[in-house]
Simulated scan of single mutants.
Amino acid sequence: MSAPLLSLSGVHTHIGPYHILQGVDLQVPRGQLTMLLGRNGAGKSTTLRTIMGLWRASVGEIGFGGASLKGLGTADIARRGIAYVPENMGIFSDLTVRENMLLAARSGPLDGARLEWIVKLFPSIRQFWSKPAGKLSGGQKQMVALGRALAEPRALYMFDEPSKGLAPVMVDSMVAALRALKEEGATVLLVEQNLAVAQALGDSVAVMDAGRVIHHGGMAQLAADADLQQRLLGLHLGAAPQRAPAGVAP
């Protein structure tokens, strides 16, 4: 295992009267794609939101690149080099696709070569360049959201269920884009319910239940162990109802 870029140790998060995260321990190795899996309500999205400072950890430590994120605001955390695409995509609906992309380049003008790489991954970005983002379909909005996250190289990319609600062809595009990101040596933390996508992309995996990480290991190990999948997730990859992405054996 590579040295972790991101580490959570004993993280608890309260939202109002609700105790959502109950001692999360998680490590995200550098240069790998880590899957964060679990049943609905396990705390996966809250974990990402806590890392980004959208919810504040009440107890515990969050380390990133050897420094603590504790007490930092969301904007400061993003400036440390973390890109985050929430489940609701987080695009600016009243702005054009072009304006959304330009705003995502925080450190200066959008690099032309990188933009060409992004539009090869997501051709709809070029197709709808001058169109208000709010007028796009759900799948097209998701492609814009992913493209925005890639507008600049980041130390860590976090995606919350990017395949949710996408047509199969859009899922294939998303998987291809994340594979390309992996080939760049990027570090990715991906929450996903589509287990075929998880199997296709994951290097390491952490499984959550009831606000805690209850399993961590290699994605290939989990994919090969139907009994472990059943125990941790209540189903197994071989019986997953989702269509496998293009190029992935069912």
Rank of each mutant, 00 (worst) to 15 (best):
G238E: 14
D203T: 03
R212F: 04
A186G: 11
M174G: 07
V188F: 04
V171A: 04
V169A: 15
G234D: 14
A167E: 14
S204L: 03
L235G: 01
A223P: 12
H216N: 12
L201E: 02
V207L: 04
A155I: 00
R154C: 02
F159E: 02
L228F: 04
L228T: 11
R154Y: 01
G234V: 12
A176H: 10
L228Q: 15
N194D: 15
L166G: 07
A196M: 13
L190Y: 04
V207R: 10
D172L: 10
L190N: 09
A224W: 03
L232Y: 09
T187Y: 12
V171C: 12
R154P: 02
A176I: 03
L166V: 08
N194K: 03
G234T: 14
S173P: 00
V213G: 07
A186D: 11
Q221K: 08
D160A: 10
M158S: 05
Q193W: 03
V175K: 06
V188A: 02
Q230D: 13
G234L: 14
L178S: 01
F159I: 09
R231T: 15
P153V: 08
A155F: 04
A239Y: 00
L178Y: 07
L189V: 01
A149Y: 12
V171P: 07
M219D: 07
E152A: 10
A155P: 00
Q229G: 12
L233Q: 11
F159W: 10
L228P: 05
Q199S: 08
L233R: 06
L156N: 10
L166I: 07
V213K: 01
A176F: 02
M158K: 02
H236T: 13
E161S: 13
A151C: 12
G217S: 01
L166E: 02
A149C: 12
R154K: 15
A177R: 02
A200N: 08
L181I: 00
D227K: 15
A186N: 09
A200C: 06
A220M: 04
D160F: 01
V197D: 12
A155H: 13
R154E: 09
A224H: 06
D209E: 15
L156R: 06
L150S: 05
Y157L: 09
A223N: 05
E192Q: 09
R179V: 13
G217V: 06
A223G: 07
E192K: 08
H215K: 03
H216P: 00
A226S: 14
E183K: 10
G211E: 08
R231M: 05
E192D: 11
E183Y: 00
A198T: 09
M208A: 12
G165N: 12
A198Q: 01
S163L: 08
A224L: 00
T187N: 04
G234E: 13
G202S: 06
A223I: 06
E152V: 05
E183T: 08
G217H: 03
D225G: 09
V205G: 09
L189M: 03
L190K: 10
A210F: 13
L181G: 06
V188H: 01
G218V: 06
G234H: 10
V205Y: 02
T187R: 04
A220W: 01
L178Q: 08
L178T: 05
I214Y: 03
L190T: 02
V213R: 04
A224T: 05
